[in-house]
Design a binder for these strands. Structure first.
Length: 284
DNA sequence: TTTCGTGT
């Protein structure tokens, strides 16, 4: 009898030691992970306004950018990254697209074959490569960073926007925080079966650009799938509030209420000199 | 320099 009691005591102590170990390890991991996330997002990682199946996601960390991955949409709901001016911007050759095993879903590099949709980057190849280097570049080719885009959007209008960001806005402001992602129809069931393989097809895409200064500036775009590609960029400027309404996400959750109201509630294009870049021709 | 598909 005595022996049994001491056996269970020992087990209880072992469980206790294990629990403490797990808590400490989790705490260390969490602190470190939080540090990485803070380095890749200004004023907090995007989160959901309300906990709904379509807005819930988990964060995948890459070199140079974060991905908010939705297992229901089988899409990145957002990507977040900084860009800063570099001496001699250039990118190496485009690597191959890669499967990302963290998504669990089997999204392979030829899942898009014959679909009529491009494999569109959210965190862009060129800008990430130029600013964050070769490894980060390869991570932008993970299928977790890819979403179905119509060719005229991906290769023309969206590409022009990406080019303006890295070639004009980054040199002007020095450092930018960019968040980009897809927009889906309001009712999930209306679009639930509209998929490329397992990947739900968005109806539009947003890109939020912030100058993270004492007095921050923000500019946000919302572009639909069906464009010709030569439209002026400033036609698609919207407020961050509008993107939050359309996506169910909360951007920059650590912003003070006061600052959030000023930055997110209205469209302010002063300071961006949009008129100079809105009509630059397509490269492709 | 910056987007991709192509078909196996």
């Amino acid at each position: 009898m005595r022996k049994r009691i001491s056996f269970w005591r020992r087990q209880a102590r072992n469980v206790g030691v294990s629990l403490v170990f797990v808590m400490v390890a989790t705490g260390l991991w969490y602190t470190q992970e939080q540090g990485y996330r803070d380095q890749l997002s200004w004023m907090g990682v995007p989160t959901w306004e309300t906990l709904t199946p379509t807005s819930v996601h988990r964060v995948l960390r890459n070199d140079g950018f974060l991905v908010g991955w939705s297992d229901l949409r089988v899409n990145p709901l957002w990507v977040s990254y900084y860009l800063h001016a570099v001496e001699d911007p250039h990118a190496g050759a485009r690597p191959d697209f890669q499967r990302d095993w963290r998504t669990l879903w089997p999204i392979t590099t030829d899942s898009y074959f014959g679909s009529g949709y491009d494999r569109g980057h959210l965190a862009p190849n060129y800008a990430i490569a130029a600013v964050h280097g070769r490894v980060a570049q390869s991570h932008t080719f993970r299928m977790s960073n890819i979403t179905p885009q119509r060719p005229d959007l991906n290769r023309r209008l969206w590409q022009r926007l990406e080019e303006v960001v890295i070639d004009h806005f980054v040199p002007r402001f020095g450092t930018l925080q960019v968040i980009a992602g897809p927009v889906f129809p309001e009712r999930y069931l209306d679009n639930a079966l509209n998929r490329v393989g397992l990947v739900e097809v968005p109806e539009a895409f947003y890109k939020i650009i912030v100058v993270p200064a004492e007095q921050p500036l923000a500019l946000a775009f919302l572009m639909p799938q069906n464009v010709r590609g030569n439209e002026p960029l400033d036609r698609y400027v919207v407020s961050i509030d509008e993107i939050e309404m359309r996506t169910g996400l909360d951007f920059f959750p650590n912003l003070s209420e006061d600052m959030a109201g000023r930055l997110e509630g209205q469209v302010r294009t002063q300071g961006w000199e949009l008129e100079k870049v809105a009509r630059l021709p397509s490269r492709f």
